[in-house]
Design a protein around this nucleic acid. Sequence first.
DNA 1: TCACGAAGTTGGATCGATCCAAGAACGCGA
DNA 2: TCGCGTTCTTGGATCGATCCAACTTCGTGA
Lengths: 346, 346
Amino acid sequence: MAANRQSSRPTLRDVADRAEVSPQTVSNYLSGRHATRSGPRERIELAIRELDYRPNAAARALRSRRADTVALVLEDPNALGLHEYFHMEFLNGATAAAHAAGNNLMVTLTRPDETLERAILIAREGRADGLALSLGDASAAAAEMCELAAIGLPIVLLQQAASVPGVSSITAQDEVGAAAAVAHLVGHGHRRIAWLCGRELWPGPERRFAGVREAAQAAGVDLVEWVCEDYTVRSAREAVAGELAGGGPAPTAVIAANDMIALGVVQQLQEQGLGVPDDVSVVGFNDFDFSSWVRPSLTTVRIPAAAMGRRAVGGQQHLDGGAVPEAPVFPAELVVRESSGPAPAA
Amino acid sequence: MAANRQSSRPTLRDVADRAEVSPQTVSNYLSGRHATRSGPRERIELAIRELDYRPNAAARALRSRRADTVALVLEDPNALGLHEYFHMEFLNGATAAAHAAGNNLMVTLTRPDETLERAILIAREGRADGLALSLGDASAAAAEMCELAAIGLPIVLLQQAASVPGVSSITAQDEVGAAAAVAHLVGHGHRRIAWLCGRELWPGPERRFAGVREAAQAAGVDLVEWVCEDYTVRSAREAVAGELAGGGPAPTAVIAANDMIALGVVQQLQEQGLGVPDDVSVVGFNDFDFSSWVRPSLTTVRIPAAAMGRRAVGGQQHLDGGAVPEAPVFPAELVVRESSGPAPAA
DNA sequence: TCACGAAGTTGGATCGATCCAAGAACGCGA
DNA sequence: TCGCGTTCTTGGATCGATCCAACTTCGTGA
């Protein structure tokens, strides 16, 4: 026990003793609040190097009430089928921003029914200074959102506007991108477009659908609504197979709620002997990593996941006294690739 | 100040006062170390519910020297091109296991040259009770590995055997899977097989290569070594294009270091008019999510990433006094799909 | 009924760094 | 040289929960 004690990590007091200054002076030096005179400073620096001292995170967090940590609470992609690839890119941006700001990142994947509960727990336990949440439907849990906001930490809601004061949000211009997709197709002569989306409407797909519907209406083209079970390739293929078997007039273009679905559409169309884009054009959303290297590569509305991740985490400095920043809305640009083209001549 | 105090989170002392017991009794109740008599227990439970009390994580960590957190330090996939999809599945398993054990998960993506430095920092600051690392080459940084191990936390090395005492590891039977892949191809009449792998040899690909080489030699078939720049689809395509242009006798099968590369191989072969699997069979590694839904779907050696993630985090309970567990080795099974088949008749 | 060991309970010290208010050293102009 | 304000340094208290040792209460057997 006592022997073990010796191998224990050095404390700030050890550094102070060795440098012959008070602990507070070392603390000042570390935090940079007051400049330290060159004499003591050099002794402190030497002592830190010799002892290989690192401040204890728990003690620091306890006293200063800051965990130097940002928590990311994401609904489990596996239980959802959606967002896996989005989350991955998002995570890349988030970690980069966290490190740049000297924070650590805590990641939690939860079942949809536990997301807010977990977020509240993390906040109440003081494990994080800020949270970013991806939720299916925040409005359905307004009470819990309020409870979370009441804790006083910066909260960022992903992919949907926040309806609770004190909660900011990060969204992309899904509607604008959707309109661009429709315009692109209409410009290529498509007059009958299908929209394919999972049964469960997430905030993102919902806004995409709204944008598509509005743009289609404005352009005066037919919009067919297709639905698939979830957001997987398999389910998209089944939906397409079912719709084509239905026998109605087939659309010359399909807009899918995300690239995963778009890919299923392409595959099933090809399987049934239809060419993409020669017979049917397909447009997706997100611009996932694979979207550029599948064949045909996917025309898609790019959602800048990594940038959003950076903003979600990097934008939390307002904890240090600033106001809640305005909701940042990221552009959603249409990326035209191989899966879309002119409508076939009737 | 004093006013703010009121809106502050309730402490264990508040609970104790309200329940008319001492703080220690509440602590005992919470930790479950001693059973609490029914009288005080009910009062404590009531007080906790009324105050909506949550223990402060920092204070608990400071005194008990346990952060209730496991850290995952992964080399940044973006800087590497490798492992992105592996990490995602791995993360799913890891979070699930962490929650099941009542731990939180801290995730860090780092540049390859900073990985160990970061891991050491996290450990020294006491932010985690255990670490799981994915490293390019652990043996190259033996000194730092020792420093990390000396801190006394459980360390798990991913995808490669640990060479430092006190460090456990989690690996898959890459060699066995590789042998199975070769056997599969040889059984289908292939006598000339190419191995394609990124220039930088990671522990995983390295062992895969070793397995392939050995099995090919044992079976007496030709093995051609191809190299691509990194582990991306694009780079794999370039490599295949270059090799085919070379003009030598083309192999009838290609084994790729992972599914990402395998996909590039398939695409380039098709682009050059070669059928998969009719003219050339392709086998990959990992069984990423997309491997089952691309077309042709990929024959691949499945690496159980999620299970490994569960084990990496869930296997750290030995912190509580147990010995370092034996290195778990996960099976790597061949999954036969559409991208491989009989060798074409010469 | 009384003594005994085993539980449950209590006050006090402690983990390691930061906050606070007060004291010492510094630089400048008179 | 002295006085003044600034800047740096100091000791002491504090964050909130857990550890420790001593005390009280309870359930048994003599």
